[in-house]
């Protein structure tokens, strides 16, 4: 995907961020227990964080020294429209999941993403999103009894109602 000594757009910033992040984690790791004992809770975290700091600094130095790639731009090769749409939708999903609940959020997510990516007809997008969501719901909620956040759709009661219907109204 990339040549040895050419720096991709944004790579320098990323490598510096990683180095700073590692330093922060090392500080936090030392705070756990200090250097109290070989068997302390902080021993492995400190070792791992120190390794991260050393390698991240080496990576950052090497990255900063390398030539930037003139043929690539951040907006085309790292975060093109389709990808940032995806990332934005994922973030929106995380925010909306609890207040709206699993069913509406997931449906919106599938629908908007399919529509934005494919540009196909409304009907096609509605239909595929609905089929996908129903199958996921059936497998996870009905077969595996995973209780997702309910939100605004009282699916638990609807499901119980179906259950009673199937068991003959008892």
């Amino acid at each position: 995907m990339r040549e040895g000594h050419i720096r991709r757009p944004g790579e320098a910033v990323f490598s510096i961020l990683m180095a700073a992040f590692s330093l922060f984690l090392l500080w936090k790791a030392i705070e756990i227990d200090g250097f109290s004992a070989l068997s302390s809770s902080g021993a492995l975290p400190m070792g791992a964080a120190a390794t991260m700091v050393v390698s991240a600094v080496l990576i950052a130095m090497k990255t900063l020294k390398s030539e930037p790639d003139k043929t690539e731009t951040f907006a085309v090769n790292i975060l093109p429209r389709d990808v940032w749409t995806g990332v934005a939708l994922i973030i929106a999903y995380a925010v909306l999941l609890v207040p709206l609940g699993f069913l509406p959020t997931s449906f919106l997510f599938l629908f908007v993403m399919t529509k934005a990516l494919s540009g196909r007809s409304w009907f096609f997008c509605l239909w595929t999103s609905a089929v996908t969501l129903v199958s996921i719901y059936l497998v996870f909620r009905v077969v595996f009894a995973v209780l997702m956040p309910e939100g605004i759709v009282p699916e638990g009661q609807i499901l119980a109602w179906f259950g009673k219907l199937l068991s003959g109204g008892k």
Binding site: I90, L117, I136, F140
Partner: peptide, 22 residues
């Protein structure tokens, strides 16, 4: 365009299902 949204949603539900944790 249909498969990728599906994979992302499956990943999310799957991550929740492991320990029922948001």
């Amino acid at each position: 365009t249909v498969l990728l949204p599906m994979i992302i949603l499956l990943s999310i539900v799957g991550a929740y299902a492991v320990n029922n944790s948001l």
